[in-house]
Design a protein around this nucleic acid. Structure first.
Lengths: 232, 232
DNA sequence: TCGACTTTGTGCATAGCTTCACAAAGGCAC
DNA sequence: GTGCCTTTGTGAAGCTATGCACAAAGTCGA
């Protein structure tokens, strides 16, 4: 779950908008690569898979960066969104837990290109410590606090088994980290002021199963359960 | 004209509720393992990391399964939520793209325990085809349609590079699949009736970076001073 | 049986998000 | 400049989600 942070009154950008900005950014980067100079809200919305009114309202929270009758300058908008998201600076990220998932994350190219630098890989298993992955040597989990402090890590990714997650979480918070991305299937308990985002692979499948079952049953309302409140 | 009135037993369950049911289910499973027979909304909400009123409202969409003065029977509630999510049946899942992420997914234990059976691993790379992962032999992507049809695959996980994702998507839809979990960083174009859920690792980090930047800048007060800072 | 106590299920107010629809603003041709 | 065209930015309306607060419904001891 995401803990809400008190936001600026004037420039408090809605959470729903923040969650979509990376989407716009990716669509814009694709356009920039293809040499597109300007783009209308209609076209950008299409590329990002949202409705154009929503896109315009989202962008209006950042400022008035479009030109009426023309659209948005691709490069300028990339810059503004990047700045808003904090991607114009370099973020040092540590990944704790170098199992299959941790390795996948370490090798994922989408991080480096967006200002996220993997500054440490840590694991508690002596058999894994010392391995070289994505150009980094895996360090022992005992080094967690020192890695965080020495390398200025401000975001930690937890990719450990569920049983270890809370302990790792407590330690990184004690070491001053306030942003955590959690892949372990547990609800982490954190004090106020710490942001936790959770990615749960099995939850997504369960949501799909729910909808799939519904399709298979021939519609949203099963005859046997037809409610009294339905009016014809 | 049919008008749907939100009500207990109405099968139209809000998306926000569906997204939380797996969370409750996990908390309940933990309690069942520890031998807890009944649980109050207060305690279950605590374990799932939500507010107890929200939990009760969510559960009320499934039906009236609690006992006032006592709480919810853990086993019974597990059954009801599982049934609602469609987890009492077996789902055959195919994973396309056996890179680091595909391997991580294939080895992830959280699937099998919830009725998701990995029925196929496919990849286009001849060097990977034939590898044995999590008890399955990787098959060539050319076999996609036949694997889907022969093994009754109803959910496909796309863990390919971005460039291959849309093509894979088109093929699985043509083969009759209507539920897709996409890990590739692209917006998939799909016809009506097809469900796509997206997990994007870098988006989550970008959202964290946004909040982290806010904290670092001293919070709401500072925000007011940015707007006209940079001119292009 | 009764009364005290616990906990659910939900009406209601509020907050947040989405979408529509259009005036305002800019470009462009002449 | 003037008029026309395109597209933004946003007020307002409608919809969905959240959380409070409490009546209703149950348990339990005496």
């Amino acid at each position: 779950m995401i803990r809400r942070i008190p936001q600026a009154r004037d420039r408090g950008i809605p959470d729903a908008t923040v969650a979509r900005l990376p989407l716009y950014l990716r669509a814009l980067n694709g356009m920039a690569e293809r040499g597109t100079a300007t783009v209308s809200s209609e076209d950008l919305a299409l590329a990002a898979g949202v409705n154009s009114a929503k896109l315009r309202k989202d962008l209006s929270h950042l400022g008035s960066y479009g030109t009426r009758g023309v659209g948005y300058d691709v490069q300028y908008l990339i810059y503004q969104i990047s700045r808003e998201l904090g991607l114009t600076q370099d973020w040092a990220v540590a990944i704790v837990g170098v199992g299959n998932l941790g390795r996948a994350l370490a090798n994922y190219g989408g991080f480096a290109s967006r200002g996220f630098r993997i500054a440490g890989l840590l694991d508690a298993d002596p058999h894994v410590v010392g391995d070289r992955i994505a150009g980094l040597v895996v360090e022992h989990a005992d080094e967690l606090e020192s890695v965080i402090k020495k390398r200025g890590v401000s975001i930690v990714v937890i990719a450990t088994p569920a049983t270890a997650a809370q302990q790792v979480c407590d330690r990184v918070i004690a070491a001053g980290v306030t942003s955590i991305l959690n892949f372990a299937p547990v609800v982490l308990a954190v004090p106020d002021g710490v942001d936790v985002r959770k990615v749960d692979l099995s939850i997504e499948l369960q949501i799909l199963a729910f909808h799939e079952q519904r399709k298979a049953n021939g519609g949203p309302i099963m005859a046997e359960e037809w409610p009294d409140g339905v009016v014809m």
